[in-house]
Design a protein around this nucleic acid. Structure first.
Lengths: 141, 141
DNA sequence: TCAAACGATTAGTTAAGCTAATTATAGGAG
DNA sequence: CTCCTATAATTAGCTTAACTAATCGTTTGA
């Protein structure tokens, strides 16, 4: 593909991703937890346990912001925060089983909506898209 | 595809979209404007002019929240807010040319990063992904 | 051993989210 | 034509989320 075609693809992929997540975000209301907290919880569940600085970097916020988000998650019983035994300045943030359950329930709601949408295209198109998802994973990893 | 396969695809597509936008979001710092304002400006540029209620619905926030975001955009010279001549209760929100320029510059930064990433996959894979983007557009429209 | 560096939190501000209340306009019933 | 109700946006007042600067504890190396 020439550079112009790649750029057009990037533009379309960008716009479609925004629309997709905007669509799915509506389901998050049902979790009863704020967007920033839900997003942080997701990182904790999939990448945790991790330090405050790591979590802040992953969420692209500064440590004080993340410190308060984590405080909220801990108060809500969705995460735990304990000093790292090897270096007691650091804190190891983990998800509680309730935190994992809440996140998984939310992810399932999102996926259910997306599955509905995927029925809009034909079977052969679904296969083509499924193959492309693997390519996309390599692009974003 | 069977239901299980579709669900796996949905899960993968969901995760990849999150990673993609998280990656591209880093570029938005350079715009010097906050996330919520940039996102609202994007809707105004592509779908505007529109009323406050429409804009709030598009951004999935309540009218008072959007009222203040728009106030910020107007103060920054990126949007205008004028009463609808047909119904003076309503307000018509439009982007200024500076707003359009700022948004377009940001979008170009994001697309540039994505284009770089798209070079990670082979030409034939790029073509497959480009076709899939069209399918994805139908899924999210 | 102790000074500097490092990791997290606290303090204090502004922006972003909400609900409830207010202001201004529109529109319909009498 | 008048008023009452409904509608659109904003204002008021709250909590949460973002930031920088300052502080507290811990670690480490000169």
């Amino acid at each position: 593909m020439n550079e112009r075609q790649i750029q057009d693809m990037a533009t379309g992929l960008h716009a479609a991703s925004i629309r997709l997540l905007r669509l799915l975000r509506r389901e998050d209301q049902a979790s009863g937890i704020s967007g920033p907290r839900l997003s942080a919880l997701s990182v904790i569940v999939f990448a945790g346990p991790l330090s405050l600085a790591e979590l802040a970097a992953a969420e692209q916020v500064k440590p004080p912001t993340m410190s308060r988000i984590v405080e909220g998650l801990v108060q809500a019983g969705l995460a735990t925060r304990e000093p790292d035994p090897a270096n007691r300045r650091m804190v190891r943030i983990s998800a509680t089983s309730e935190g994992k359950r809440l996140l998984e329930a939310g992810r399932e709601r999102r996926v259910r909506v997306l599955v509905q949408r995927l029925h809009r295209i034909a079977d052969s198109e679904q296969r083509a898209l499924a193959r492309a998802v693997e390519l996309l994973e390599r692009v974003v990893r």
